[in-house]
Design a protein around this nucleic acid. Structure first.
Lengths: 374, 374
DNA sequence: TTGTTTTACGTTAACGTACACGTTATGCTA
DNA sequence: TAGCATAACGTGTACGTTAACGTAAAACAA
């Protein structure tokens, strides 16, 4: 009875006894409790040290840090997630899927798949899309995105200037950011995930060179309404030409720039170019619009070697058809998947990604396209 | 004071008050507690229903099951793991990495990487290796594996009979199982992750046909001490030949079977075959031993087209060298990674894999090998 | 001196599940 | 009908972490 009376006067002693009970029951070897026990402090203090929060004297902090190293403390992720029950909101800003090209469906699929997998960890993904032809739409979407206070951002920085401005603001807010598909090398980011363009041009060149004779002529076709700003195409062309130089191959190579994307315009340009260069035996189209060229060649019963880019439905059809020989592709779906996973792993301290993750450069042909996206 | 006195007499009432407090504080919408609240039972009973344990009346069981469906109850995996603090042990049974070929380092790397990522969820991986030349070693390793009572198994079933016997036992024990690299289609398993051999043979044929002239002869080389049992090689050859048939290509194709793997034996065989078939312009080696052929061709200053398999160091060297033109490869690292992840996702109810996951069939050349394994 | 702020730390209630154990209620046997 | 087994359910607590809250004591101000 005196025990219980004691309880009344100093309720705390009750807990002390509880504490004793627990200590008797258990001999912990890991975790914050063990750290606290060894340091003769409470787990609260340990927690403050672990999370670099203030309110701990330097001496205590040091002692605790020492113990943490000593026992090689690895926080229990499950307990941590359970306790913090924080909801992380990832924001994704990528081009919308236009009628013109369904390229971005693939990264989007990858993003969504990753989203499914990390959902259970309390991660939600919010999507923002912009029109690849409108800088305004990009700015508008970027603004909306930042208003949502995301904890992580995935960005496809198509417009360099506008993206740079946005990235500046993101970095001020200290939000982890990954680039996808194209890089802004000078802007700090967690990582870049996407293609290495120059090398893919070289690969296209190698494939071309293996399939044609020494004297055959080659034509590089760039199709873009905004060619000056499309450094993608330039890099690929550079890679292509350098390969031929490096390999001491003397095939004549001409470049055809087409600034309009309607079939009619491309058709005119290509036919005219072919008249002027009748010995051209192979075409290298530096982006996914290779299906337009395939269409034209088919219409005019031409059987040139045709190499282009990207696993799009319209391209695959011509691949099956035999009109396109090789498509070069850099795992668009995986890009999206890896980007989300990189953010997740970073925020959950699983690991930090490389500064740049270059996707493998895949060659798609009639005989392997079936297995490309499973 | 009277309150504390009350506590003495009926200690429970203290908890009751606590309970009340909690109920006031919270309005839960998910989880066992909510189910218990709706069903007017305790969480203990709900727990029993969820885990199909006895001790619940049919009426109560039905009511609870109904509520579980109603609110679409998804157990919180983290809480569950934390509470049960069970350690899941995955067992891996794959060939060891011989001096002859380092192929299995790649799947192993993938497995280890996945292992790192799931470690935090209390998953450990135990490795068992067998000698590809010894069925006994397989049986021994399989026995050891089963003695460890793993909760999931990853198996590379190289020896069909022995593997089948093992799989039978695994299925009796009801342990989730995935096959990697080769399949046992008739044996039930969670999934198969690996190559589609026939199609990769077709792809090799396509690459070959694009790079040679119509009249050039082709030689298929199978190198294996146990060719009869190596259905891998047979399937690839079938694919290769079928492509030429389907494409109405008339290039003569001969097959050279070599039953010894020493360089000397292969050299003799190849040189002799070349004398008999002087018009051979291209070789297709149906497995990773293509580097042996490359070695021989280089030694004798031959510049035939050479297509083979697998991203091995010795093969890559000849790829850089130019002696090998194409390597076909089916993401060995990813196979290992995906296999572990499939088991993890299955056991954690994230999702169930497809019955068979065929890896993309990649083409590796001098110009893209750098980015293949990042 | 007294009052106020700050520092440094302890305590405790969640988070959602699992399970050992205690308590009734019910049925069955001798 | 006493005695006992067992079915059916409730209770308490552990799991490891987080973070809000509380509170001494120290530092400082008046």
């Amino acid at each position: 009875m005196s025990f219980y009376l004691h309880l009344h006067i100093h309720p705390k002693s009750f807990y002390y006894i509880c504490g004793l009970n627990k200590m008797i029951k258990k001999t912990e070897l890991t975790g914050v409790k063990e750290i606290a026990r060894r340091a003769n402090v409470s787990i609260g203090t340990v927690d403050r040290v672990i999370h670099n929060r203030k309110g701990v004297s330097d001496a205590t902090r040091q002692k605790i840090n020492l113990i943490i190293e000593e026992i090689n403390y690895q926080p229990n992720k499950m307990a941590s997630l359970l306790a913090s029950k924080k909801i992380l909101n990832f924001a994704v800003l990528i081009p919308d899927i236009s009628v013109e090209t369904d390229y971005w469906t693939y990264p989007l699929n990858g993003i969504e798949q990753a989203g499914e997998e990390v959902k259970q960890f309390g991660i939600t993904i919010q999507y923002f899309f912009y029109d690849l032809h409108s800088r305004d739409s990009f700015n508008k979407a970027a603004e909306e995105l930042l208003n949502c206070n995301p904890q992580a951002i995935l960005l496809a920085p198509s417009f360099i200037e506008e993206s740079t401005a946005m990235v500046k603001r993101i970095n001020e807010l200290n939000i982890p950011l990954v680039f996808i598909n194209s890089d802004l090398p000078k802007q700090p980011s967690l990582t870049y995930i996407g293609p290495e363009l120059y090398q893919s041009g070289r690969l296209a060149a190698q494939l071309t060179s293996l399939s044609i004779a020494h004297e055959d002529e080659i034509m590089i076709i760039n199709i873009s309404t905004d060619l000056e700003n499309d450094h993608h195409l330039v890099r690929k062309e550079q890679g292509f030409r350098t390969y031929f130089n490096d390999s001491k191959l003397t095939n004549p190579i001409t470049t055809l720039n087409i600034y309009e994307t309607h079939i009619a315009s491309v058709e005119n340009a290509v036919l005219e170019a072919l008249q002027q260069n009748p010995n051209v035996k192979a075409f290298f189209v530096t982006n996914s619009r290779v299906n337009i060229v395939a269409n034209i060649l088919k219409k005019h019963n031409k059987t040139h070697l045709l190499v282009g880019y990207d696993f799009l439905k319209s391209n695959i059809n011509y691949l099956i058809d035999g009109q396109i020989n090789f498509l070069i592709c850099q795992r668009p779906k995986e890009q999206g998947y890896l980007a989300i996973m990189a953010l997740y792993k970073y925020l959950f301290n699983i690991n930090e990604p490389e500064k740049a993750i270059y996707m493998p450069i895949d060659i798609i042909t009639k005989e392997n396209y079936q297995f490309y996206n499973s």
